[in-house]
Design a protein around this nucleic acid. Structure first.
Lengths: 205, 205
DNA sequence: TTTGCGAAATGAACAATGTTCATTTTATTT
DNA sequence: AAATAAAATGAACATTGTTCATTTCGCAAA
């Protein structure tokens, strides 16, 4: 049975190789500009082989999407050591923004992916479960902040959503502005400056 | 000279017709799924004609992009009657969110458009000038709010950006969640609920 | 009315892409 | 060594954006 095991492992490895090359090309040239032929070339396999391992181009996007969410969730793990909830909340924001700024293309893939519909019905849940899990971490932290006397008069669910929206909005607008090369008075510091403004709102007891 | 004038007018009309049909198809079937042939069919002209009036598919996207920003700017015009700056700021948020919720596909077009690069160098400025102009209106309002005693200890530029980010984040996440059909505990009211949380932060003097 | 000319419209043709599948190659077992 | 299963292949197809030589049209001049 060891040969079967090796085969299974090799299959996984090739699958991972395809994903790695795809991500590289997506980041380099953009999703639209990356063709299956490009991917196949990059890993020295034929076009058909790519289709043996992934149903279609969307399946690749899909897998990378999940991968990115898992990666971000991983970044959040360091926060479990931060006991004070407000400190943790602030750190979460920093980590989130840092991830988006370090990986603008991945962030784009995570949130701005134009999903060609059918995978809605298909596997739908999986990759957004990762997103939902991350949101749970945020909600819990906000809950603890409320317990510690912050956010008086606010409601947990919409407040958590608002906080996520703020972070997402900052990252989304910044990335968009960066790739277009337009507006924004202080492009270098606007993100951290905006984040500081955000802190002034949430820190008040 | 009247025939020349009429010809010029007819050209503009056909151009507008192409844009109208394109927008309809984009909203109906999505940008990727809308082909030049579809557009040509919809207006009973040939493929080539579309290319007589627009350099390529991107030029069409581009024109619609500008059109949407102009439309949103138009919605803001009602706000000029609101004297109190904080009331105006709150109303701006409402109008912004309303526009995004009423026209999710247009909003997507405005902010999530994957621009195939060259138009970066080309006409770049134009369509984002609309965005910049809108941002100016926001900044001015925030400035007046500060003058009225709000936002003590905050800085105008990053604060304005943060406020825009909040609104954009709310709309962006909601639209994304809606088209995927996932997460969010109270999908029906989450946007207005989050907006209300937002108000609690900014209303404090 | 007829003719001529410039502008507008056309659609066949091309290159590039995602995708399929019958065939070939490779690996494993008998 | 032969047989069988698995994996890899790339030619072929449908669809797309795009181009351009050709045709059609509108209108002023003869």
């Amino acid at each position: 049975m060891s040969s079967a095991e090796r085969k299974a492992r090799e299959k996984e490895e090739l699958k991972a190789l395809i994903l790695k090359a795809s991500m590289k090309l997506f980041v380099e040239k953009g999703i639209e500009q990356t063709t299956i032929r490009n991917i196949a070339d990059a890993i020295d396999y034929s076009i058909g082989t790519v289709y043996v391992y992934f149903k279609d181009k969307n399946a690749i996007l899909h897998a990378l999407h999940t991968q990115c969410f898992t990666e971000l969730a991983g970044q959040f793990r360091v926060l479990y050591t931060v006991k004070d909830p407000m400190e943790r909340l602030k750190a979460m924001g920093k980590v989130y923004i840092q991830y988006a700024m370090d990986n603008p293309d991945k962030y784009d893939l995570m949130f701005n992916l134009k999903e060609p519909m059918e995978f809605l019905n298909d596997i739908q849940a999986k990759e957004w479960d990762e997103g939902a899990a991350t949101f749970d971490v945020l909600r819990t932290t906000v809950q603890e902040c409320i317990g510690a006397g912050y956010f008086k008069g606010h409601n947990l669910e919409p407040l958590s959503f608002l906080i996520w929206s703020c972070m997402h909005g900052i990252c989304s607008l910044e990335i968009r502005a960066r790739t277009k090369g337009v507006l924004l008075k202080n492009p270098d510091t606007i993100v951290s400056d905006a984040y500081n403004e955000f802190l002034k709102f949430i820190e008040k007891k």
